[in-house]
Amino acid sequence: MPDTVSFGYEDVAPDEKTRRVGGVFASVASSYDVMNDAMSGGLHRVWKDVFVRRVKPRAGEAILDMAGGTGDIAFRLAKAGAAVTVADINPAMLEVGIERAAKRGIDGLVWSEANAETLQWPDRFFDAYTIAFGIRNVTDIPKALRQAHRVLKRGGRFFVLEFSTTLWPGFADVYDAYSHHIVPKVGKAIAGDEDSYRYLIESIRRFPNMARFKEMIGEAGFVQTKVEPMLGGLVAIHSGWKI
């Protein structure tokens, strides 16, 4: 790992990023889903629906949903009868997810505090691994990708839903202005936390572009890697297989 990593537009020591990202999500956990609606105009629900359709969960298979604390992806996966383990490094996010599951009458999910870089499960344990809007917050992304590859069975599939950079002319400039100037203000109004939402926007800008992230997934050992851009690449679904 390099001596410094990105925390938004800052470059900080790896341990510092891990600590500060933990603080961000502890701060926003209770309002995270409301803010997702506000920031995306509800589109995050559509993106997540498309994402889970691409995963094609099946009854009885074991799926690890990493950085899935609030349960949004896990609830969708569980509808197919999959055995879903919801993992998150942040206990505050897991608490929100457990409470949401109880209110919805969803049981059978396994909730686990876990670091994507040092997963506690044995080799070849899961049939699929999903991570939605979480990989960019990981301190050592290549290490997390290698861990994902390790815990997947042969033939296992890997899926990432993450913000990227839209390639649509004009729209990119509009979204850039909106995200930098409006989203932090909305975060302050709804969540009382402008700085955390400023970080979340800045972290998108520092995340590798679609082509580079696709390469990184391949470098971790996955094959048949693909990227499916939405809204010109504002959001992208990345995938790969373990053989």
Rank of each mutant, 00 (worst) to 15 (best):
A144F: 04
A144C: 01
L145N: 10
R146S: 06
R146M: 04
R146T: 03
Q147P: 00
Q147L: 06
Q147D: 10
A148C: 13
A148Q: 07
A148V: 13
H149M: 03
R150L: 02
R150Y: 03
R150H: 04
R150I: 05
V151K: 02
V151R: 01
L152M: 07
L152C: 01
K153G: 12
K153V: 11
K153C: 09
K153Q: 13
K153M: 09
R154K: 10
G155H: 06
G156I: 05
G156M: 04
G156R: 04
G156V: 03
R157E: 02
R157K: 08
R157A: 06
R157P: 06
F158A: 10
F158P: 00
F158H: 08
F158N: 08
V160D: 12
V160I: 14
V160S: 11
V160L: 11
L161F: 02
L161E: 05
E162C: 14
F163C: 00
F163Q: 00
F163S: 00
F163G: 00
S164V: 06
S164W: 11
S164C: 09
T165M: 09
T165K: 15
T165L: 13
T165S: 15
T165P: 07
T166W: 00
T166H: 01
T166R: 01
T166S: 01
T166F: 01
L167D: 13
L167A: 14
L167Y: 11
L167G: 14
W168C: 11
P169K: 01
P169H: 02
G170N: 04
G170Y: 00
G170F: 00
F171I: 15
F171R: 13
F171L: 15
F171D: 13
A172C: 08
A172V: 12
D173T: 13
D173W: 14
D173N: 15
D173A: 14
V174K: 13
V174G: 04
V174Y: 10
Y175K: 13
Y175R: 12
Y175D: 15
Y175T: 14
D176C: 07
D176F: 12
D176P: 03
D176L: 12
A177Q: 09
A177R: 10
Y178N: 06
Y178R: 07
Y178I: 05
S179M: 05
S179D: 07
H180E: 07
H180R: 08
H180Q: 05
H181V: 07
H181K: 14
H181D: 12
H181L: 13
I182H: 08
I182A: 11
I182F: 11
I182V: 11
V183T: 05
V183F: 01
V183C: 01
V183M: 02
P184N: 02
P184K: 03
P184C: 06
P184I: 11
K185A: 03
K185N: 01
K185T: 01
K185E: 03
K185D: 01
K185Q: 06
K185Y: 02
K185L: 02
V186C: 14
V186G: 10
V186Q: 12
G187M: 05
G187K: 06
G187D: 07
G187T: 07
G187W: 07
K188R: 08
K188M: 02
A189Q: 00
A189L: 05
A189G: 05
A189S: 02
A189N: 00
G192L: 15
G192M: 15
G192N: 15
G192P: 15
D193F: 10
D193R: 13
D193N: 14
D193L: 09
D195G: 08
D195M: 07
D195R: 12
D195I: 09
D195E: 08
D195A: 14
